[in-house]
């Protein structure tokens, strides 16, 4: 009896510190998946990409070649890719912020009817994969006379165009595809931010006799600044990382005179079609540089916002 209780007490003493230990150890076990994944699938490849960008990587033959890959960046293909991405970013930012913002503000207004229905139908394109979206828009922008885009412009007396063979028309096609695919999501971002604005602000503005437009520009727009910066940033990121859209419109062999070549498409081409992993990594590192600049700008903008608070 006595021995038993003694053992029990001993057992308790043993488990108590063990549980304390487990409380100290537990958080590290919880975050372990991230640590492993971060080291193996993020840091290691990232460091490897930096190293490979200074190497010539051929199967079984890897050698250090200094900045040769970076010097190789001064070529027309790279310029074309950078130019295409930058134009794409410019146009998508120009369309995919004001349009969804306006739509969200209108949808949020008290006189709007059937809000849920319209919200859902504008959102549906976002459910479609870029591959299927690409299939559809490649067919829409086909050069056949009867295809949707050509029959549409023929209503205005314009003759059929070879949309995907011209630099400016194909950029138009890419931006239309992006608008179709992303406007609904961006609208929802703005919508949820709008619904977070306290009603009292508008009510007190009403009492001060403010009109609809002045309320929109003096209350709504400033309070939407954080979400606008966010949408701005993901649009730029997405624009510079764009690949699948171009891949779908022109196929794996690439576009005529590289009118649809993007930075990631260039990485893909160099890495998997020319097997030049070194140069491919160099393009990746350049893209990383662009991304970091965008991040710094974003953080700055957000920092500004915090100061105003």
């Amino acid at each position: 009896m006595n021995a038993n209780t003694g053992r029990l007490a001993l057992k308790k003493q043993k488990t108590a510190p063990r549980r304390m230990n487990s409380q100290k150890l537990a958080p590290y076990l919880f975050i372990m998946p991230f640590i492993v994944s971060f080291l193996l699938f993020f840091s290691y490849p990232l460091i490897h990409a930096v190293i490979m960008s200074f190497q010539q990587v051929l199967p079984g033959d890897v050698k250090f070649i200094g900045l040769a890959n970076y010097r190789k960046l001064w070529n027309s293909d790279f310029y074309q890719a950078l130019w295409n991405n930058s134009r794409y970013v410019f146009w998508t930012v120009l369309v995919l912020i004001p349009l969804p913002l306006t739509l969200a503000a209108l949808l949020n207004s008290s006189i709007m009817r059937a809000k849920n229905f319209f919200r859902a139908s504008l959102f549906i394109p976002a459910l479609t994969s870029i591959v299927v979206a690409g299939i559809i828009f490649r067919l829409i922008f086909s050069e056949l006379d009867g295809a949707i885009m050509n029959s549409f412009i023929s209503l205005f007396g314009l003759s059929s165009q070879k949309w995907l063979l011209s630099p400016s028309l194909s950029m138009f096609a890419l931006v239309v595809l992006a608008t179709w695919r992303w406007a609904g999501i961006n609208m929802l971002y703005f919508l949820s931010a709008l619904q977070g604005i306290p009603r009292e602000l508008y009510e007190s503005a009403d009492m001060d006799g403010a009109g609809t437009l002045s309320k929109f520009f003096k209350i709504t727009i400033p309070l939407l600044k954080p979400i606008t910066i966010y949408v701005f940033t993901i649009t730029i990121y997405g624009g510079y990382a764009m690949f699948t859209e171009s891949f779908m419109l022109w196929g794996s062999r690439g576009s005529p005179q590289n009118i649809g070549l993007t930075m990631v498409g260039y990485i893909y081409q160099q890495g998997f079609q020319y097997f030049d992993l070194g140069f491919g990594s160099t393009i990746g590192i350049t893209l990383l540089g662009i991304t970091l600049v965008v991040s710094v700008i974003q953080l700055n903008l957000l920092g500004f916002f915090k100061k105003e608070d």
């Binding site: 490849p45 990232l46 490979m52 990121y237 990631v264 990485i267 893909y268 990746g284 991304t291």
Partner: peptide
Amino acid sequence: GRAFVFTLVLAVMMIPVEIIILPLYKL
């Protein structure tokens, strides 16, 4: 190290995966 790990999470979020596809492929 909690704050540090959280910073790493944010850092990973900010870098597009497209950048590391070639080394990830080799891995």
